[in-house]
Design a protein around this nucleic acid. Structure first.
Lengths: 253, 253
DNA sequence: CGTAATTTTGACGCGCGTCAAAGCTTGTGG
DNA sequence: CCACAAGCTTTGACGCGCGTCAAAATTACG
C-alpha cells in the first residue's frame, strides 16, 4: 500500500487473485487504513470477475449496485451521443475506481467496457456505505477519493476546452505515464491500452489530427512511438507543453 | 442532478437569514434528512458571511477548513493559468456548494470570488465529517452530492470539448435557467450574475465570439437579451441545440 | 493468406481566434 | 449633475488550426 515503491515491471507480480494489495490500493493508499479496516474491506469485496476485450462491465442505465476497482487490464467509460457516435468519458487503469458517478441517481450514466482482457473487483456499494459509517478512516478516504476525482475532472475539463490539440496530447501522455508510474510501471515507457480512435475520441480530436500530432512529436524528438508502444523521450518538454512547470503526479481521467 | 420538485416560485420566501432552509438545501434536499439531523447540521454551520463584488472567499493554496453553501449572490471559482490569464472553473449559484475539490489535499486548488454582493454559510469540514460518521443519512447525502458533481463535470467536460460554440452557449443558458429554476426563479428569464467576459472565459470562447452568438440567437428568435437580462424564448430549440431531446434538469457547472 | 479494420497521408474549407477600433456602460471627481 | 476616464461589449476584417473528405498504407484477425 505504500506509494511509489519501485515494483518489478511485471504487471501484477505474484499477487494473483488477492484483491488486498492491488485493486483496493486506491482505497487504502493515501492514508494507510489500519490492518483491521483493510480486512473488513476485503471481506465485502467480491472475487475478481474477468472481462474480455470489448465486454461491458455495465451499460448505460443499469442499476447501480457496486463500484469497481480495476485489477488488471483497462476500461473505458463511454456513452452514445445523440448522433449515435460513441463519446468516451474516461479511461480506467489498474488500481483505479469505476462507477463513482452513479451513486447519485442509482443508475449508471455511462457504460464501462474493457479495452483489453481485464479483471475487476466489485465493491457492493450498500456494504461500503455501511462500513464507511462504522469506520471513520474509510469514510474520510472515500470523501478524499471523490474530491480528487472532482479536482482531476476540473483540470481535464479546462485542458480539453481551452488548450490546443498539441497540448492536449502532451497532457494525456504525461497523465497516462504518471498513472502507470504510480502503479509501478515505467514513467517514460508505456503501452497504450486504447486504440488511436479511442484516444482521439477522448481528446476530442479527429483521428487524423492525432496521427499527425504523434508524427510531429516523433520528429521533434519528444516521443518514440511504435504502434501502441510509446516512449517519452523528452519529459521536460512534454511537461512544458502540458503546462506544468515541474512534474507533480497528475490527476486521473 | 436534483429532481424537479416544484417549489414556490418566490426566490427565498420569508426565510431570511436562517441557514436551515436556504443555503443548506443542497445538503438536505434530495433525500429529506430528518429534523434532528437538520438541527445538528445547523448547529455546526457558521453564520452567514458577506462578500462584496470581487471579494475572495478563499484563494488558491489556502488551507482547506470548510465547504461553503452559497446563500445569496453568486461566486466563480477560478485559477490563474501559466500565461497569467484567469481561467474560470465554475459558477456557483444560491443553494450550491463550493470547495468540494479541496478535500483531498487540504488546500484549495482554485480561488472563489464573489461575482456580486453575496452571502455564504461556512460548514467546517472536520465537524461535517464527524457528523457524517454519526449520521448515516448525512454521509449518504454527501456521497450523493459529490457523485452528482462528478457526473455534472463529466457532462460539461464533453460538452465543452466537442460541441460547437453555438451548442455550448445553448447548454450554458439552459443549464443556468434550470439551476435558477430549481431555486424557485423563472425558468425562461434570468439575470446573468457574470459578465460576458467571464461567461466566454468559462465557455472557452473569445468574448467576440460570444457576442456574435448572442446576436445570432436573438436574430433567430431563440432569446431576448438586454445586458445581463436574458429571456429564453424558444426553449425547445435551445434544448435541441444543447443536445437534449426533452429537458431533464441539467448538471451544475 | 485474404478481408476488414485501423492508421496514415494529402488537399481543402470553415469555425472561431486574433487584431483593431468604434460604441456603450459604469464609476469618480469637480 | 455633468465631464472624463476606464472599463466592458460590439462590429468588422483576416488568418490559422483543425475538421472533413478521399484514398493509400498498414495492421489485425479469422
Amino acid at each position: 500500500m505504500a506509494q511509489e515503491h519501485d515494483r518489478s515491471r511485471e504487471p501484477m507480480g505474484a499477487l494473483g487473485q488477492s484483491c488486498r494489495d492491488c485493486s483496493l490500493s486506491e482505497l487504502c493508499l493515501p492514508v494507510a487504513l489500519d490492518g483491521l479496516t483493510v480486512d473488513e474491506l476485503s471481506a465485502i469485496v467480491e472475487r475478481d470477475s474477468y472481462l474480455e476485450r470489448g465486454e461491458a462491465l455495465y451499460q448505460v442505465g443499469d442499476a447501480f449496485q457496486a463500484i469497481y476497482a480495476v485489477h488488471s487490464g483497462a476500461l473505458k467509460t463511454a456513452e452514445l451521443a445523440i448522433d449515435g457516435e460513441e463519446q468516451i468519458f474516461g479511461f480506467h487503469l489498474p488500481g483505479e475506481l469505476v462507477g463513482l458517478d452513479a451513486i447519485n441517481d442509482k443508475r449508471h450514466p455511462c457504460s464501462a467496457v474493457a479495452l483489453e482482457a481485464s479483471s475487476v473487483c466489485a465493491i457492493p456499494y450498500d456494504q461500503l456505505e455501511a462500513l464507511a459509517a462504522k469506520i471513520p478512516g474509510l469514510q474520510r478516504q472515500l470523501f478524499r477519493i471523490m474530491s480528487q476525482e472532482i479536482l482531476a475532472d476540473h483540470e481535464m475539463l479546462h485542458s480539453l476546452a481551452r488548450r490546443r490539440a498539441e497540448d492536449r496530447l502532451a497532457i494525456m501522455l504525461v497523465n497516462l505515464a504518471d498513472r502507470f508510474g504510480r502503479r509501478g510501471w515505467s514513467r517514460d515507457r508505456l503501452r497504450l491500452p486504447m486504440s488511436r480512435g479511442e484516444l482521439s475520441n477522448y481528446l476530442a480530436l479527429a483521428p487524423e489530427t492525432l496521427s499527425r500530432l504523434l508524427k510531429r512529436f516523433e520528429q521533434q524528438g519528444l516521443i518514440a512511438a511504435n504502434g501502441r508502444e510509446i516512449r517519452l523521450l523528452d519529459r521536460r518538454q512534454l511537461d512544458a507543453l502540458a503546462g506544468r512547470p515541474d512534474h507533480p503526479p497528475g490527476g486521473s481521467c
